[in-house]
């Protein structure tokens, strides 16, 4: 047993990478939920993004093209969800679950023939001097671009919701769609755009797994990351910066328990692995949960 073998700097640096796919997907879902829509299909959109991104990268050799295609693929798939829930007024919970089922099947079909191929390496940023600095170097300057894009996305969403007029409208639609409609906002259009943004982000998150973290295509490779993203949005009580904390906490618990194991501590893994979810419930209780968007999950029909 040896605490000394755990290097906190590397621990933080690696949990930042571990958290990135979840941050990307959760950032999208946060916007979707702030617009009052609950899309439980994150897992399906992530895995679709993972395979679409992988296919494009495998053919073009460019990771960036892959990420672009993944975002597009995720957005297209989410458009299906938008069509059903916004125009055909289907139930969001059931539609989201169907979307996950659909996405898992679609990705496995698309991915036939892509097993066992390795994706080209996605270069890390390497700034001379800075990356080599002790402590801050590995944590702040040693990652691949998507890690920074994930964090930048959080910042952008925060600014968008807080300062922009469009963000205000989005929040209004999410809080009370009838009132927003009465004020003349296009509830369906805004929500459709939000859903597509969510799909694009989930696609990016999935592609990060298939292009950077693993980087290879295997069926079902997201292995539940989409569900964790959903949990983190709740944990964050729909606040962008808390989302970052939540994702690091979730990733951190995993990385920490692995670290403790490797250092020779006998720890009850099962109990540690359920702790983030219990923490999420506690946060929900402590936040008094009045903070959930008012219209979350409710069907909106304009003609009343």
């Amino acid at each position: 047993m040896d605490f000394g073998s755990i290097n906190p700097v590397l621990l933080v640096a690696s949990l930042m990478v571990a958290a990135t796919p979840i941050i990307l997907a959760a950032a999208g879902e946060l916007i979707v939920e702030r617009a009052g829509v609950l899309n439980l299909g994150v897992e399906g959109m992530m895995i679709t993004g993972a395979i679409v991104g992988f296919i494009v990268t495998a053919h073009t050799g460019s990771s960036w093209a892959g990420f672009g295609a993944a975002a597009l693929g995720g957005a297209l798939l989410s458009l299906l969800f938008a069509l059903l829930t916004q125009f055909l007024l289907s139930n969001q919970v059931a539609t989201g679950l169907a979307l996950t089922l659909f996405g898992l099947g679609l990705s496995a079909l698309l991915g036939q023939g892509y097993n066992g191929i390795k994706a080209p390496e996605f270069a890390k940023i390497d700034i001379p001097v800075l990356t080599d600095l002790p402590v801050v170097g590995p944590i702040l300057f040693g990652h691949d671009p998507m890690v920074y894009i994930g964090i930048a996305l959080i910042a952008a969403i925060w600014a968008f919701l807080k300062y922009s007029r469009a963000g205000l409208v989005l929040r209004a639609v999410g809080e009370n769609h009838d009132a927003a409609h009465a004020l003349g906002y296009h509830v369906m259009r805004i929500r459709t755009l939000a859903i597509m943004f969510g799909g694009a982000c989930a696609g990016l998150g999935g592609a990060y797994i298939s292009l950077v973290r693993v980087p290879q295509w295997t069926d079902g490779m997201t292995a539940g990351a989409g569900w964790i993203a959903l949990a983190i949005v709740v944990f964050a009580s729909w606040q962008p910066w808390r989302l970052l904390i939540g994702a690091y906490l979730f990733g951190g618990v995993t990385v920490l328990q692995l670290n403790l194991q490797a250092a020779g501590f006998a720890i009850p893994v099962e109990y540690l692995s359920m702790s983030p979810y219990i923490a999420t419930i506690l946060v929900l209780v402590l936040m008094n949960a009045g903070r959930a968007p008012g219209s979350l999950g409710r069907v909106f029909h304009a003609s009343r």
Binding site: L88, F102, L109, D219
Partner: peptide, 21 residues
């Protein structure tokens, strides 16, 4: 392939939810 069946089930659910309108 098993994946085609999964896709098919997903489609069935989508269409059922869609025509429900």
């Amino acid at each position: 392939p098993g994946a085609a069946i999964q896709l098919f089930q997903g489609m069935l659910l989508f269409f059922l939810l869609a025509v429900d309108v």
